[in-house]
Amino acid sequence: MLSIKDLQASINGKEILKGLSLEMGAGEVHAIMGPNGSGKSTLSKVLAGREEYEVTSGTVTYQGVNLLELSPEERAHQGIFMAFQYPVELPGVNNTYFMQASLNAIRKARGEPELNSLNFMKLVRTKLKALEMDESLLKRAVNTGFSGGEMKRNEILQMTLLEPRLSILDETDSGLDIDALRMVSMGVNSLRSPERSMLVITHYQRLLDYIQPDYVHVLSGGRIIRSGDKSLALELEEKGYGWLQEEAAA
């Protein structure tokens, strides 16, 4: 599904990722954990195609194609979705309209028929219901005046609508209360399937109580310094990152 080899990336001449390698198979959920400034968000943005980040070396192969050659929208058409850590406000742009335009842009790129408004509304209502979300979200402008929790719920709603092959959740749990966290996890878990993979980037172990990862990786100094299963997350919760960083430095 996704193969990252020796990835090096920088922004404004500052190197953030310093040789990161990661293999993800179809149907797998990988968690990336790490202290602030370790390069977690950079990784997600490089994968989604943010142009400010310059890839200086390494390769990223996604479903057999060179991901780094694709524009952000082409990556989206290929099934990559990123739930933003800080979703962006689009004042005056209706949320329903935005989601329909997004879904139809992706369907069109794949040669699938576009959904008309009626069918789209049916679909979005089903998704809302499954996530126990309120319909009022549909009438508002994209993320405009949303609370932190509402923004994250909105991201998950979009994710379940677009049914991506590869979901990247960039610290989606930050700033969420337990209810919101539960809802986010519900959305993520509902999408789990043998074809779909997920990269869950998080600062805290807490989210992993709800979303059980197959693998946990520790990112530090722009590299993965330790990989393991779910138990690694628990160990980190207990001991912090210090001991791993010392080990890595040694």
Partner: peptide
């Protein structure tokens, strides 16, 4: 804003028009 729209599959032109 543009990146957010493009990550959702919209072309840059469509994103600008929408914004």
């Amino acid at each position: 804003q543009l990146f957010y729209c493009r990550q959702r599959g919209l072309s840059e032109e469509d994103a600008v028009s929408m914004i």
